[in-house]
Measured scan of single mutants.
Amino acid sequence: MDVFMKGLSKAKEGVVAAAEKTKQGVAEAAGKTKEGVLYVGSKTKEGVVHGVATVAEKTKEQVTNVGGAVVTGVTAVAQKTVEGAGSIAAATGFVKKDQLGKNEEGAPQEGILEDMPVDPDNEAYEMPSEEGYQDYEPEA
């Protein structure tokens, strides 16, 4: 019985440690998101679009440190934060509304985080759909 109880105690310690790591990862992701939003706020009209992409990228980098179902929630929060940063930029006159959601080359930025393969159960990952990809044929 002692062996059984000791095993359960060790398992509990492992769960607590994993929860603490997840909590730490979420806190880091939130900190990076805040950094990115402050970065966007300090940019001029020309830099705002690039700044919004930076927020998304920093958040995406930190999301990889967070495991399990938390990833889905962090990704949703990050996307809403990026959308909010863009709205703030438009409201303050840093950028025109028609410039939001495009990178410096004018290509749409939507789907940055949505296409990231995420499995809350950590069982399997699927690649994003290939609808947006084109076949590449090298020139002879």
Rank of each mutant, 00 (worst) to 15 (best):
V55D: 01
E104P: 08
V71K: 10
T22N: 01
K96N: 13
I112M: 11
T59M: 08
K96P: 15
N65H: 08
E110P: 03
P117Q: 11
G31H: 14
V118Y: 06
E130W: 10
K60N: 06
N103S: 11
G25N: 12
N122T: 02
E126N: 08
K80Y: 05
A140F: 11
V37L: 12
D115Q: 11
T22K: 00
E83P: 10
A85S: 05
S129Q: 04
V66E: 02
G36Q: 04
K34S: 00
K96W: 15
N65Y: 04
E104G: 09
A124M: 04
P120I: 13
V49S: 05
G67H: 14
N65L: 10
E110H: 04
T54R: 07
Y136N: 10
D135A: 03
E126C: 14
L8M: 02
K34A: 07
V82C: 11
A76Y: 12
T59C: 15
K43E: 00
G14E: 05
A76W: 02
T44K: 01
A19E: 00
S9D: 07
E13S: 11
V55M: 13
Y125E: 13
M127L: 08
G68R: 15
E104V: 02
E137K: 03
T92W: 15
Q99S: 07
T59D: 01
V48I: 14
T92S: 13
G31V: 07
D119Y: 14
V40D: 00
G101Y: 07
G41T: 09
E130C: 05
P128E: 11
A17T: 01
E139K: 12
G67V: 08
A89K: 09
G106Y: 13
V16A: 07
K96G: 02
E105F: 08
G73S: 06
T44I: 03
D121I: 10
E35W: 12
V74C: 14
S42K: 13
T64N: 06
Q24A: 01
M116Q: 13
E28W: 04
E114C: 13
V82G: 05
T72S: 01
V118L: 11
D135C: 09
E61H: 07
K43Q: 10
Q79T: 11
A89S: 07
G47Q: 00
G41L: 05
G31K: 14
V37P: 01
V15P: 00
V48F: 11
T92H: 04
A140M: 07
K60C: 07
S87M: 10
A78H: 07
E131G: 01
E20V: 06
P120S: 07
V49Q: 13
Y136D: 02
V77A: 10
D119M: 03
P128V: 04
V70L: 15
A17N: 09
E46M: 09
T59I: 13
T72F: 00
V48D: 01
A107H: 10
K21L: 14
P108C: 07
T81Q: 04
P120W: 11
D135Q: 15
A124F: 06
V77G: 04
K6H: 04
G93W: 13
K96D: 11
D98K: 10
L113R: 12
E83S: 09
S9R: 11
Y39M: 02
